[in-house]
Nucleic acid binder design. Structure first.
Lengths: 239, 239
DNA sequence: ACAAAAGTGTTGAGAGTACACCCATGC
DNA sequence: GCATGGGTGTACTCTCAACACTTTTGT
């Protein structure tokens, strides 16, 4: 962790006096459902600016990795999780967003089932924590804006496509799925309408197994149909 | 146009041996309606790689300008046009997309009324040309992919929000507007349904004037209601 | 008067919404 | 047998889609 200088090659047609290169990072908004709440993983900054404030985990983009790889790497470093739903969100590049220097960040968001995270050893020493999206702490840089944008996008996606599963374990009950939707959208949904719509979308299959824990009648367990990824993109799933 | 080297400051926590900075550009997909066709403005490359091939106009992002400013600047340099609809599209960052070096590009798209362009002096000396989106030449880099993505997004936007006006002069007839939609979506629309929907969306106002050129009955001229920007975002405008 | 484009309503189908009771299990 | 959550059907409304003729102008 030291400041440094480096000599870089500049491209043809590039006037070095005017066109210094910005730094490029990826930031990954990591969503998960934790105890009936939509939460994000944040890391505590160690140094100025915004020292000791919470921030979205990120990484500098290395010269030979793609943006997706950088995002996946940042995600794995913080959570140990791989193979989860990741999507590019937006690129934030205001010259003043980092007071030290010009940093352009390509924001991604990821949906991770919470139990997948707990088993992973947090390889990074940095302090991390899960925070409710509905009670966020003060955030470094423009990270609040990024989170707000990510939530809008997640809600939007949820209505039009079927990404809700990505936040649940690979088998789940319809009630669990509905609860996930309700938490994220912030509103109650009608049970019968929810079930009709989600089942008629044909993206689930019954496992045949039943969920046995807790009181009451055991619920059928469902699984996301692997072959049903693109199908749902057409129409709105929820009002 | 020379190669150069420059010494740059690196941020705290940045290991210079591993993390050289990529170059960052913006590319702007400039759409316009030309003679019943959806066209894009392309520039002919002068130097290798892809010399003499067509490419999407772009610019390096300067250290003290925002991404939007860079996009607006690139747009103004090629078309002389300002104050047009511009929207960030996606960020393309494959390490191999430029064979010379790592270039990350933030793609934008812009909708410009065609007559606004013609009056402007092309300030750049580079050769430019308008090409039909439905008969594109071979393109440099990954620019074909960017254009395909831009068209999908434009169609999508057109269905859900009211951006069609941005491609027309500030007063226009409903038939002209419908034709614009048809060209972009690539399908015929029903005249009565189109008019009902577009009028009930409440984003147009009559000018009181009538269009007088050509044969047949003169058509009412409409104008986009300035105060109606956000309203339309809710529901799908077309099937 | 006729050619050309503008303008205008209705009907049927399907999707969305609201709503209340019986069922299976554990204790 | 009762408490707990799982599971199911129907009627109304509204939006969407299909469809053809009259009106206004210029020549």
């Amino acid at each position: 962790m030291t400041e440094g200088k480096v000599i870089v090659n500049l491209p043809e047609g590039y006037d070095s006096s005017k066109y210094e290169r910005p730094s490029v990072t990826v930031d990954v908004v990591i969503f998960s459902l934790v105890e009936d709440d939509l939460q994000v993983l944040l890391v505590k900054r160690k140094s100025a600016p915004f020292a000791a404030m919470w921030a979205i985990p990120g990484a500098f983009v290395r010269l030979h990795e793609s943006l997706e790889e950088a995002a996946t790497r940042a995600l794995a470093e913080e959570t140990g999780v791989e193979d989860v739903y990741t999507e590019q969100l937006y690129t934030f590049g205001d010259p003043e967003r980092d007071p030290r220097m010009r940093v352009i960040t390509i924001a991604y968001f990821a949906l991770v089932p919470h139990e997948a995270v707990r088993h992973a050893p947090g390889r990074e020493t940095a302090e991390t924590g899960w925070f409710s999206m509905f009670g966020l702490p003060l955030l470094a840089f423009d990270h609040r804006e990024i989170l707000d944008y990510a939530l809008r996008r997640l809600r939007y996606k949820l209505e039009y496509t079927a990404v809700g599963f990505q936040l649940l374990p690979d088998v789940f009950t319809l009630t669990e799925l509905q609860k996930a939707y309700e938490i994220i959208l912030g509103e109650k949904l009608d049970k019968r309408n929810f079930r009709r719509k989600i089942l008629s979308a044909n993206i689930l299959e019954e496992t045949g197994e039943k969920h046995k824990e807790g009181e009451g009648r055991p619920a059928m367990l469902y699984r996301y149909r692997e072959d049903a990824v693109a199908e749902v993109k057409t129409r709105r799933l929820f009002p």
